[in-house]
Amino acid sequence: MSRSIWIVAEHQDDNLHTGAAELAGAARSVGDHVAAVVCCEAGSTVPAQAAPFVDQVLVIENAALSGYTAGLWAQGIVGLAKESAPAAILLPHAPLGRDLAPLLAARLDAGLLTDCLELQWEEGLVGLRSVHRRKLVSRERVATPIAIATCQRGAFAASPAGDAAAIETASVAIDDTAARTRLLSMERAEVGEGSITEAEIVVAGGRGLGDAEKFALVQELADAVGGVMGASRPVVDQGWVPHDRQIGSSGVTVRPRLYFALGISGAVQHVVGMRESDVIVAINKDPKAPIFEYAHYGIADDVFKVVPAVIANLNS
């Protein structure tokens, strides 16, 4: 019997998110029929954009579905899944999946595996998840007839584009008066002049710098190497530096020639924003910090000892 895996297509402003091809790749790793479910308004080109990556596109069309509204997308997908009973439904471990996947799980009485790094099929959907701050991997299996999972961005090889799959419009009724959350507006990111994304050298500091005053060391090294200062999220959250300096999934993505990570642990949400840099240098006093897995050069020592020595060395 063929095993059908659905992916929920993520899109904005009529553009399919590039992560959809990865999600299709994840679905192929455990299924032999892959369908993309697209919630959109009539006339959207998103179904056609998804078609090359999957075997079938199922479109749930309604004027109320143009922006993401949890309850309405859930209504459509749950309605369709109850009719067609896919083996699993996959979403990105991103704002869409964090919001929608547990809604689908609750309404389909399904087990949910989040932030999966790898999927397997062993009498049910098995997911590998990183736990305890990446020190352990947990293998978990969904025990319900339909499985839901969210996949970590970048963890799965993208499905190559092939022939465009057939696009079918599903007939599910959407009652848009039933939504208890409503999207009012979107705020786009502001990309300032001379922003960090254009810098050739980025010197980023993390919570390991201790406080706002001591964080000045990051700017000092940036000045010494002619680079731009950046930061991890806790630094921005605590107001040491403005938000446009935040690197990572909820900040900016940078690809400089040289990247310094000072007192940054290397959480996945940070790493996705810098791992493409040409040369990565990490200085962290914990020799087991995950950042060393991404760096090309590492120094397991105190930033307050090493960085002043680096600056002195550059100036001599």
């Binding site: 993401y68 991103a94 704002p95 959350t181 409503r182 999207l183 009012l184 507006s185 979107m186 705020e187 786009r188 990111a189 502001e190 938000h243 446009d244 935040q246 999934s249 909820s250 900040g251 900016v252 993505t253």
Partner: peptide
């Protein structure tokens, strides 16, 4: 993601 927000 990427510095965007939604008002809900």
């Amino acid at each position: 993601e990427g510095g965007e927000h939604a008002n809900v």
